[in-house]
Amino acid sequence: MILTVTLNPTLDKFYWVDHLPLSLERVEEEIVIRALKSSTSAGGKGINVSIFLAAHGVDTVAMGFLAGHTGQIILRDLLSRDVTANFVWIEGESRTNVTILEQGKEYHPVRIHEEGPEVPHPAVDVFLRKYERMLARAGYVVLAGALPPGIPDDFYRTLVQSAKLRGVPTVLHTGGDPLVEAVQEGPYLVKPDVREELRFGDMPLRTEEEIIRAGRRAVECGVKACLISHHVTGDILITSDGVWELEAKVPLTTFKNLVGADDALVGGILVELTRGAALLDAVKYGMAAAVATAEVEEKLCLDKAAIERELDHVVIRPKGGG
């Protein structure tokens, strides 16, 4: 079973529009933008990974905090997708994240993210108890996404520590200070979330050299593998055995929605690892899943045949000096 932790789940709301006004500061009293279509689904990075895994027949349990009416919708959506849910209910309302995709500019979505409800201390204790119990049944743990208000920056570090004590490998998919903190405990795989900032702690991630330097520092902390986005269709994998460049040879014009691509990448890697694949093969499958996801309008591509087709477009090259 793969346990995913999403501390700040979201109801993802997507709107597809044919045109967005260049400016919202026109003299009209209001601007009406009619959506060509919309979709709603349970979200948050760990939840997306769970949805991907469940669609691939991998047993998965999603954990975190849910609140209010929005939390009920998130739970219902997860259960309908065969994801096992083990959430702690708190006061307030789970957040809703809105993404607006303009036709022809899907690579540049407009996103509105809510902060999410504050997590009270007693709820954190309940969560930790549940987490410890679930670790006994977990093959991997995925810690993913931003922290909600009320959760300290070193919380993922605590969760990595607990998993490590029980011999459960962790996959860390987050950014900012929570990432820097948790890396100190040597999780198995790290996929920094660089959507908001091209940094890994105090290290910039703009150039290939900077990415490799940051990855190597993570490996020095005991991380088995660090996978960092280099550009839209390329990642760099850094392990203690070497450095590899992954490239998807597909035109950017085929991309329709990039929002869930990183989560499909993590999900794809885990699908293959649970099948016993070697890390490089697993990362290749993950990359194919990310590309297939970017090529569909839905947040995640759950079509195995489409992912298999993308495998031919993914190239892995060892980098010199690795």
Binding site: L66, L79, A85, N86, F87
Partner: peptide, 21 residues
């Protein structure tokens, strides 16, 4: 597939809240 459950020491008030939620 909902693992919502309570512990032996969960207070009654929390149980009522969880049933409602």
């Amino acid at each position: 597939r909902d693992l919502t459950a309570v512990d032996l020491d969960t207070p009654v008030t929390r149980v009522i809240y969880l049933m409602d939620q």
